[in-house]
Simulated assay, not measured.
Amino acid sequence: MNNNFSRIYSINDSGIGCLATLVLVGLLLGAVGLGWLVNGFLILLALLFIVPLVAWFVLQWWIKQKLVIDQCPVCSYEFTGFNDTECRCPNCGEPLKIEKGHFYRITLPGTIDINAIEVPVQVIEESDEEMN
């Protein structure tokens, strides 16, 4: 006789007795006038499932509002930070302040921050006639 064949069709009913006991206790409490206790337990059970689900969506919304992805104004390295905080660039170490979705350098009061541009050098060849 093949013993493995009977294991395939066996039904695991270990949780049915516990569930039946809970249902019977709930019906008994409702019958004797303690339905408020059963209702309170069901509300608590529902809150245990609903609150984490709502908290997950609120957390995702908060992160989308606070998370900023931008480039460092000094070295153009792109990284992530939280809005309205101060941090350092992980690439060049420059202290930065994150405001309104962008990274700004932190400078001392009275410091003028400028952007330098490169000016191409043109070599003018002088003719021999002009030199003589």
Rank of each mutant, 00 (worst) to 15 (best):
V54K: 10
L53H: 13
T107V: 03
L24N: 11
D84W: 10
L45K: 06
L27Q: 10
V58L: 13
V123T: 06
V74A: 01
L19S: 13
E130N: 13
I16K: 12
S14D: 10
Y9P: 01
E86N: 11
G35V: 02
F49K: 12
L59T: 03
T107N: 12
L34W: 11
L45E: 07
F103Q: 02
Q122E: 01
N3R: 04
L24A: 15
T21A: 15
G30W: 03
L47R: 09
Q122I: 03
G101C: 09
V121W: 02
G15Q: 11
L48V: 05
F41T: 06
T80A: 05
P120M: 08
M131E: 14
E129S: 06
L42Y: 15
G17T: 08
I124W: 02
S14F: 05
H102F: 12
N91V: 00
C72R: 10
V25C: 12
L67N: 14
L22W: 15
E99K: 13
N12G: 00
A55S: 12
E99T: 08
V119M: 06
P90H: 05
I69F: 15
K97Q: 05
M131D: 14
L22H: 15
N91I: 01
M131F: 15
K97W: 07
D70V: 02
L24K: 14
T85C: 08
V51Y: 09
W36H: 09
W61T: 05
W36A: 04
M1L: 05
G30R: 03
G40R: 05
F49E: 05
I43R: 13
G15P: 04
L45Y: 12
I63F: 12
Y104D: 00
C92I: 03
C89L: 09
A20Y: 12
M1W: 05
D13T: 09
V25D: 07
